[in-house]
Design a protein around this nucleic acid. Structure first.
Lengths: 112, 112
DNA sequence: TACGTGATTGCGGAAGTTCGCAATTCGTGG
DNA sequence: CCACGAATTGCGAACTTCCGCAATCACGTA
């Protein structure tokens, strides 16, 4: 068991998250389950494209789908996705302010 | 300013992390700056491949490089990468146990 | 049964990623 | 100055991802 090194699994997880549409889907699903129709209305994407991205998330086990009549409702599958997205957001802002500081340094050095 | 939606930036960040070698590099750099030589010894990858992955991380601003004599030393550039990796690890284990529970459910249902 | 709507799947081409080889840069020591 | 080791860059081939079109499946309804 556990034949896949942890860092491989992490890389694969990150690769799964590496698309704007899939990020949007996960963000939207954080507020609770949602039918495809609503996702489609909220995200700028063709129905077929959305289906493909949903399929990726489904295959990876990050979301679950269940039919309710003629519509299909998607939901997060357990894990704490929110925390991961929060950490990503934080890291992004940290990197941006870091660049600002570097820029300020350079400007200061330039004026000397 | 801020012309890129946040979810696009997140997706790009995750895409950057979506490779085993890059994950390993970031993990190793968490214990402090490290010369390329040591990274090369620790990771199973050709020198040229490592350089390319380091270039990706450099361009994205996640790591910094500085020469020290004939070697080049890489370091994390500020942000809290550790937290992101921890969140990823947590989510992975949650997803795995989730699948175990699902499997158990199916087996139970099957035996009825 | 036949039709319409919601959602998915199966392609095919365009675009992007990864990897190794060869060539290049940069610094150190003979 | 020349040769060497460390690291990077340029490039081409193999592979993967992404996107839209057409076809299909699943469900409710006339």
């Amino acid at each position: 068991m556990n034949s896949v090194p942890l860092y491989e699994a992490k890389a694969e997880l990150f690769r799964l998250l590496g698309h704007p549409v899939r990020i949007r889907v996960l963000e939207l699903l954080q507020d609770g389950p949602m039918p495809v129709r609503d996702l489609l209305a909220a995200i700028e994407v063709e129905p077929t494209g959305l289906s493909q991205h949903l399929a990726v998330l489904r295959r990876s086990g990050m979301v679950t789908a269940q039919r309710d009549g003629s519509t299909v409702v998607y939901a997060l599958a357990g894990g704490d996705v929110a925390e991961l997205l929060r950490a990503a957001r934080k890291l992004l802002t940290q990197m941006l302010t870091g660049q600002h500081e570097l820029l300020a340094e350079l400007l200061k050095a330039d004026s000397r």
